[in-house]
């Protein structure tokens, strides 16, 4: 099925993050949250561009980069589909999504002069909170 992702995607032009990046990040986010599933068709470049009022080339750039990253695959004559391969989202692929945030945490912790064990300890309650939420 085709997900009406133009209703799920939002862009913020003045955020300092290029719009193609925002689209990429959001498609990834929709995958991680399960709102987009392996095999789902993405809406056409044209309909996303028109719905968000952004340049079609921007959307097409985001799709192509996601294709290169193996997240999407091109279906000839039909459009873009969520790649079934990375469907399950291997643990390492999902960890990759977390990496930039982890790097930030590590860098900040170092600036603040915190030890690794202090940081681990600080993170623990958050993970527990999520586990309980299930």
């Amino acid at each position: 099925m085709t997900v009406p992702a133009e209703q799920l995607l939002r862009v913020f032009p003045s955020s300092g993050v290029p719009i193609y990046r925002q689209v990429m990040d959001q498609v990834r986010g929709l995958l991680l949250s399960g709102q987009l599933r392996p095999g789902d068709m993405l809406p056409s470049v044209r309909s996303v561009a028109s719905a968000l009022a952004v340049n079609p080339m921007t959307v097409s750039k985001a799709y192509s980069l996601l294709e290169a990253a193996g997240v999407l695959e091109r279906v000839r004559g039909t459009g873009m589909r969520v790649s079934p391969l990375q469907a399950e989202g291997s643990a390492s692929a999902r960890l990759n999504e977390l990496r930039p945030l982890l790097e930030q945490v590590a860098a900040k912790a170092q600036q603040l002069g915190l030890t690794p064990s202090q940081v681990r300890e600080a993170l623990e309650p958050y993970l527990e909170m999520l586990a309980e939420g299930r």
Binding site: V45, R46, A49, S50, A53, V54, N55, P56, M57
Partner: peptide, 15 residues
């Protein structure tokens, strides 16, 4: 303005 931007996007969609 948003309507106008959509029209513009439609117009340029054929590249």
């Amino acid at each position: 303005r948003r309507d106008f931007l959509r029209m513009l996007v439609e117009l340029v969609a054929d590249g």
